[in-house]
C-alpha cells in the first residue's frame, strides 16, 4: 500500500498547506465584516479547481491499482512480463499527443485560430492512434500466450490499461466538445484547451508509471536507491 499512502500523503500536504493559508488558526468570532484577512473564495476558475479535484480522484484510483500490483508481486507466481513492441510505439504516440495539445495551448495564447485547430486535430488523431496501438498490443499478447487470465502481470496489464483507455475515451469526448467551441475563436476555447492539456499530461504520467511498475523498473530503481543509501 506504499504507493497509495505516498499519494494520500501528497494530497494531505497540499490540503493542509492550503488550509493554513486560508487562516484556519484565526478566531472567527473576533472578526466581523464582509472582508477579513483570509482570502475570499473563488481565486481561480471553477473548471480548473474541478479538474484538479478530479485528477486527485483519478490519481488515487491508479495509485491504488499500482499498490495492488506491488502487493500481488510479493507472491510466488509473479514473474516479469514481456510487453509486445507495439506498446512502445503506443507510448510514443501518447507522448506526441501530449506535445500536440501543449502546442495547441501555445497557439491559443498567440491567438492563432488555424494553428489551434490543427494542433487539436493532431492531438486527437495521435490519441486515437494510441488506442489502436493498444488494441493491437492486447491482441498480440493474447496470441503469444499472455491472455487475460494467463499470468498475474498480464491480468494487471489488461486491467490498468483498460481503465486508462476508458479515461482516454472520456478525454476525447471532452476534447470533441472543446473543438465545437473553436468557431467562436481561439480566445473562447483557450481555457478549455488548457484543461484538456493538463488531463493529457496526467494520462501520459499514469501510463509511464504503470509501465514502470509492471516491467519492474520501479522496483529496480527503488532497490538501487536503497543500495546507494545504505
Amino acid at each position: 500500500m506504499s504507493i497509495v499512502l505516498g499519494f494520500v500523503a501528497l494530497v494531505a500536504v497540499i490540503a493542509l498547506t492550503w488550509l493554513w493559508r486560508q487562516g484556519v488558526a484565526e478566531r472567527p468570532w473576533l472578526e466581523t465584516g464582509a472582508v477579513t484577512r483570509s482570502p475570499s473564495p473563488g481565486g481561480q476558475p471553477t473548471g480548473r479547481t474541478g479538474l484538479g479535484v478530479f485528477l486527485i480522484v483519478a490519481g488515487g484510483l491508479f495509485a491504488l491499482a499500482g499498490s495492488a500490483v506491488t502487493m500481488r508481486m510479493g507472491y510466488a507466481d509473479w514473474f516479469e512480463m514481456r510487453l509486445p513492441r507495439v506498446v512502445w510505439a503506443g507510448t510514443a504516440l501518447l507522448a506526441l499527443s501530449s506535445l500536440a495539445l501543449q502546442a495547441a495551448v501555445f497557439a491559443a495564447r498567440r491567438g492563432d485560430g488555424p494553428g489551434l485547430a490543427s494542433w487539436i486535430g493532431a492531438g486527437a488523431a495521435s490519441m486515437a492512434a494510441f488506442l489502436l496501438a493498444q488494441g493491437l498490443a492486447w491482441a498480440r499478447m493474447a496470441e503469444t500466450g499472455q491472455g487475460l487470465a494467463a499470468t498475474p502481470g498480464a491480468s494487471f496489464f489488461y486491467l490498468i490499461s483498460g481503465l486508462h483507455g476508458l479515461h482516454i475515451l472520456g478525454g476525447l469526448v471532452a476534447l470533441a466538445r472543446v473543438a465545437t467551441r473553436l468557431r467562436r475563436g481561439p480566445g473562447a476555447a483557450a481555457p478549455a484547451v488548457a484543461l484538456c492539456t493538463i488531463y493529457w499530461h496526467f494520462l501520459l504520467i499514469v501510463w509511464i508509471a504503470m509501465l514502470a511498475i509492471l516491467t519492474g523498473w520501479a522496483s529496480d530503481a527503488a532497490a538501487l536507491c536503497r543500495a546507494i543509501l545504505s
Partner: peptide, 24 residues
C-alpha cells in the same frame, strides 16, 4: 458518487459567497 462528490467539494471551494471564509 464521484460526480456528486466533485460538486460538493468544488462548490465549497469555489462558490462561497462574499465574506464566507473557511472559518465562518
Amino acid at each position: 458518487f464521484t460526480m456528486g462528490g466533485l460538486n460538493y467539494a468544488v462548490t465549497v471551494l469555489q462558490a462561497r459567497t462574499r465574506g464566507m471564509t473557511l472559518m465562518r
